[in-house]
Write a protein that binds this DNA or RNA. Structure first.
Length: 889
RNA sequence: GGGCAGUUAGCUCAGUUGGUUGAGCACCGCCCUUACAAGGCGGGGGCCACAGGUUCAAGUCCUGUACUGCCCACCA
């Protein structure tokens, strides 16, 4: 006996041991020259500032399942780990730390500040890596990357310079989204629109020629000083006579033109709109088309500029208050309404975003998008497919991407201006002199690049690009990108564009978009709501395998996951179940691996059955994993292990283990099935399977291997035996029937009863005869008789299984009325089924139109049901007589 | 305003190509049966949101309705 496992599974030490083993042995560091089809996934790089949240845990679990499975299937697997420098987020974190010391980044100066961020990363950046490690992610740690490391920075520069030279990066004045707290531009998709209860002010503008007035509606009166036009719809009869005239800006007194544009919605407000080209995206567009004056009145700090006249120096909030009061005093405020509308907020700090005109750098994504769009679905599949539509729509309506950020932490834009002649120099290497005038006073652009710029290069920059590396040749394009749908625009689409442009190939064959993890009532998890589930805490409490299994089991394609701690706790039971099944096996296996037996010709219905089922499960789990049906794979493994292997097979072989003649076969089948089952489950729950695998006996002279390097179990066609499996089901049916009778008649399960079986035919009789050894212990019998000529005591409980009558003579204090009620209930159920099938079969159009195979199956079923019913009716009749006799006697 | 999901047992969710709705947790009853009480055995509980349609047959396909959630969007 090789029992070396403790009674209850204690994941903590086991997991830590395997983590260390895999890392120390570089188990997951692939050799580019090794054989096998390439399989590669790049990790969606978590922010260095981040702590692992449940979304990461889901993402990395699914990737790990895929990678481990691919490795089992003989592929040459590379999983590249890494982190993202997360410009704004990281800068914010460090600035907050500085603030606690009473300092600002300006106090330190740019260089010292950046030094400080690097230091911060030195101190804390490894946390997230430890968390990835804790999850059991089979990443190659030797290829760890960071978006700001030297190689990736070189890639960023090369991409920037090339795109600039190709005219795909340009610098220009544009209205962008400005966060006055982060003090930087934000890309369109970095702005989150939130519903807001605001006000709609209706303000009268007098005509310059004194001939009348026009009333506009605005939600932002503080921008009135920046008005340079009033706009109405060209077909709006109310205002047609005013178009071309001039109006006077309230308080400021400037004269502005009244123009017409079909953009205006006649139904909204008053149908007249004030145009402030510098402080509204739409007005910016109007200003361009109508060649209006551009007047900036709010600065980058949210303070009114000199151009705002009397309001100069006020904050925009104070300005709003004051100008409304002034207009009201002048009698030109006609109405104030409540209005629900969407207001943009910074996705990092949640400050209200101000449209702001400034000089920024842009990538001409409008030119790059068509190729990225065309690649789906032919070159890259998006799964679930429904997301492809979203992807298309975004690319079809894309605007150029603002990539400059007015912060310090990030890739500084490789552009310099010559102080002498003003020449703009964009270069991979830091220039020393101006190529035009030779001047040496070159000033580098102050801005850094959007974090997502470097992320967009991730699939090839991590593999060493622009060098022509072996890794790139071997593993680009990557196999699949696994990520949340929330970054399909930020990241996926941009990787597609950059990958195609610089590698000439899409960056991945598949994109699998997984769910968002929500709390049990469907809310997004967030620290402020206090509903977060911390994966590390879960790992600590229940073990990593329990967490991984839970996430996998709930990862149905296209659906959000509602997670609660109770579920993880529930699946911990499953891990423990495997553990105890293994303990049982070890108690019953020899020190070295049992001698092989030909499994294709093995005797014993239970062995044939479990081997048959194993083949089906093997095939189904493989297919599920290939098709990203993670939940199906998990569920199939769960049911097989618990409901078939543990509940039935382990019980069935207990008697074998007491019989020296049957023991060797049972041992070998047990050993084989358990080992293969561990392999099937290993991608999902790597730790417990590794530990058990290691403890199982191996052939004499060999040493235990690492399950992570073992192949997926091969198919064993000789073990596919549907007939034997069906026969096993009869045996199980009989056993369940006896158990049900006991349970429902309140007979203790431990109480041994006699059992009479009246088989339906000779084949059944022979089968039951041969299977007594299985029925006896599992049904807990005192005696068993099989035959059609047996006379049963009339006071018997009974049931019918596949035409076989199951009769349990009742002795002692048993509630006989209970049995009658039980029979009635069973008959009622049968009656319902019979009615259903017969209705179908009596339906002429069913029998004539349904496929013959379906009709035959229904007929067969009807026959069985009718037969069962007849037998059960007869049994009930006998029982009634018995009751009557007892009553009379 | 547009688009996309979801609606199945008390709760959280499965249900591949249409062919007797399944699981976990919760609940009820009986069991410490020598792998596991984090367990075993048995049980109750569903006109599959609603209304039409296609079909011999619909949870499954089509149309509409009602809620719920998400994404996108330039009604100031």
């Amino acid at each position: 006996m090789a029992d070396t496992l403790p009674k209850g599974y204690e994941p903590r030490d086991v997991e830590e041991r395997w983590r260390a083993h895999w890392q120390d042995n570089k188990t997951f560091t692939p050799d580019p020259d090794a054989p096998g089809d390439p399989y590669c996934i790049v990790i969606p790089p978590p922010n260095v500032t981040g702590a692992l949240h449940i979304g990461h845990a889901l993402n990395q679990t699914l990737i790990d399942v895929l990678c481990r499975h691919a490795r089992q299937k003989g592929k040459n697997v590379l999983w590249v780990p890494g982190t993202d420098h997360a410009g704004i987020a990281t800068q914010n974190v460090v600035e907050r730390a500085l603030a606690r010391e009473g300092k600002t980044r300006q106090d330190l100066g740019r260089e010292a500040f950046i030094e400080r961020v690097w230091q911060w990363r030195e101190d804390y950046g490894h946390r997230i890596l430890n968390q990835i490690r804790a999850l059991g992610a089979s990443v190659d740690w030797t290829r760890l990357r960071f978006t700001m490391d030297e190689g990736l920075s070189r890639a960023v520069r090369k991409v920037f310079v090339q795109l600039f030279n190709e005219g795909l990066i340009y610098k220009g004045d544009y209205i962008i989204n400005w966060c006055s707290r982060c003090h930087t531009a934000l890309a369109d998709d970095e702005v989150e629109h939130e519903p807001h209860r605001g006000k709609l002010w209706k303000v009268r503008y007098h005509l310059a020629d004194g001939s009348g007035e026009i009333v506009i509606a605005t939600t932002r009166p503080e921008t009135i000083p920046g008005d340079t036009a009033i706009c109405v719809h060209p077909e709006d009869e109310r205002y047609a006579h005013l178009v071309g005239k001039s109006a006077i800006v309230p308080v400021l007194g400037r004269h502005i033109p009244i123009i017409a544009d079909s953009y205006v919605d006649r139904e909204f407000g008053t149908g007249a709109l004030k145009v402030t080209p510098c402080h509204d995206h739409n007005d910016w567009a109007l200003g361009r088309t109508h060649k209006l004056e551009f007047l900036q009145v709010i600065d980058e700090n949210g303070v009114m500029k000199a151009e705002a006249g009397p309001y100069a120096g006020l904050t925009k909030e104070a300005c709003r208050e004051k100008i409304v009061a002034d207009i009201e005093a002048a009698g030109d405020l006609l109405d104030v309404e409540e209005l629900d509308h969407a207001v943009g907020h910074c996705y990092r700090c949640h400050t209200v975003v101000e449209p702001h005109v400034s000089t920024q750098w842009f990538v001409a994504t409008t030119k790059m998008a068509p190729a990225a769009r065309a690649a789906v679905p032919e070159l890259t599949r998006i799964l679930p497919e429904s997301w492809a539509k979203t992807y298309y729509r975004w690319l079809d309506n894309i605007r150029d991407w603002c990539i400059s950020r007015q912060i310090w932490w990030g890739h500084r834009i490789p552009a310099w201006t010559c102080a002498q002649c003003g020449r703009l120099i964009v270069s991979e290497e830091d220039p020393t002199a101006c190529p035009r005038c030779g001047g040496s006073d070159l000033r580098q652009d102050e801005d850094v690049l959007d974090t997502w710029f470097s992320s967009a290069l991730w699939p090839f920059s991590t593999m060493g690009w622009p060098e022509k590396t072996k890794d790139l040749a071997r593993w680009y394009p990557t196999s699949v990108l696994v990520t949340g749908f929330d970054i399909i625009f930020f990241w996926v689409a941009r990787m597609m564009m950059m990958g195609q442009h610089f590698m000439g190939q899409v960056p991945f064959h598949d994109v699998y978009l997984h769910a968002l993890v929500r709390d049990e009532s469907g809310r997004k998890m967030s620290k402020s709501t206090g509903n977060v589930i911390d994966p590390l805490e879960m790992i600590d409490k229940y073990g990593c395998d329990a967490l991984r299994f839970t996430l996998t089991a709930f990862a149905a394609m296209g659906r959000d996951i509602r997670l609660s701690e109770a579920r993880i706790e529930g699946y911990r039971h499953f891990i423990n179940k495997i553990w105890n099944a293994a303990r049982f096996a070890l108690m019953n296996l020899p020190e070295t691996a049992p001698a092989p037996v030909d499994l294709g010709t093995v005797e014993g219905l239970h062995h044939q059955w479990i081997l048959h089922r194993l083949e089906a499960v093997k095939q189904e789990m493989d297919a599920a994993l290939e098709e990203y049906r993670f939940n199906d794979a998990a569920q199939t493994g769960y049911k097989f292990l618990w409901n078939e292997f543990c509940d039935w097979y382990l019980e069935l072989i207990k008697p074998d283990m007491q019989d020296e003649a049957r023991k060797p076969v049972a041992q070998y089948v047990l050993w084989t099935v358990l080992r293969e089952l561990l392999l099937l489950l290993h991608p999902i729950i790597p730790f417990v399977t590794a530990e058990i695998w290691h403890a199982l006996p191996v052939p004499a002279g060999q040493t235990a291997t690492d399950i992570a390097l073992e192949p997926w179990p091969a198919a064993r066609p000789a073990c596919v035996r549907p007939d034997e499996a069906a026969r096993m089901e009869l045996i199980q049916g009989v056993i369940v029937a006896v158990r049900t009778i006991k349970a429902e008649l309140n007979i203790s399960p431990a109480h041994k009863v006699s059992l009479l079986l009246h088989p339906a035919d000779d084949a059944q009789a022979a089968l039951l005869e041969a299977s007594q050894g299985m029925i006896f212990p599992l049904a807990r019998l005192e005696s068993l008789a099989i035959g059609t000529d047996l006379t049963a005591p009339r006071a018997s409980a009974s049931s019918v299984v596949c035409g076989c009558q199951v009769i349990v003579p009742l002795k002692g204090a048993v509630d006989l009325n209970g049995e009658l009620a039980r029979l009635d209930k069973e008959l009622a159920k049968l009656e319902k089924d019979v009615a259903g099938v017969q209705a179908k079969l009596h339906n002429e159009s069913f029998t004539s139109r349904a496929p013959a195979e379906v009709v035959a199956r229904e007929r067969e079923r009807a026959e069985t049901l009718l037969d069962n019913r007849a037998k059960l009716l007869a049994l009930r009749e006998r029982f009634r007589e018995a009751l009557g006799d007892d009553g009379d006697a």
